[in-house]
Simulated scan of single mutants.
Amino acid sequence: MSIFRFGVLSTGATSSPGGWTTLARRVEDAGFSVLQVPQHFSVPSVPPLPSLAMAAAATTHLTVGTLVLDNETGHPAVVARDAAWLAAETGGRFELGIGAGWMAADHTMLGHPFREPAARVDRLGEALELIRGCWAGRTSFAGTHYSLDAMPEGCATAHPPALLVGGGGRRVLDLAARHADIVGIAPDMRSGRIGRAAARTTGRGPVAAKAARIREAAARRGATVELHMSITAVVDRADTARIDKLADTFDVPPAEVPRLPGVLVGDTAAICDELRRRRAETGVGYLTVNEVLLDRMAPVVAELTGT
Rank of each mutant, 00 (worst) to 15 (best):
I3P: 07
R5P: 04
F6M: 09
R26F: 05
V27L: 11
P47L: 01
L49M: 11
A53K: 07
A57K: 14
A58C: 08
L67P: 05
D70H: 08
V78T: 13
V79N: 12
A83P: 01
L86E: 08
F94T: 02
E95H: 05
G101A: 05
M103E: 07
T108I: 11
V121Y: 03
V121N: 03
L124M: 13
G125Y: 11
E126N: 15
E126Y: 14
L128S: 12
E129W: 03
A136W: 01
R138I: 07
R138A: 14
S140V: 09
T144E: 11
Y146T: 08
Y146K: 15
C155P: 13
T157F: 10
P160N: 03
A162I: 09
L163F: 08
L163V: 04
V165E: 09
V165G: 08
L173K: 15
L173Y: 13
A176H: 14
H179W: 08
A180I: 07
I185G: 00
S191V: 03
A199T: 11
P206F: 05
I214G: 03
E216R: 14
A219K: 11
S230F: 01
I231Q: 00
T232V: 07
A233Y: 02
V234Y: 08
R242H: 12
R242G: 06
L246F: 10
D248E: 15
P253R: 01
P254T: 00
R278S: 06
T282R: 08
L287R: 03
V292I: 01
L294A: 12
D295N: 06
R296N: 03
A298S: 06
V300M: 06
E303M: 10
G306K: 00
T307G: 08
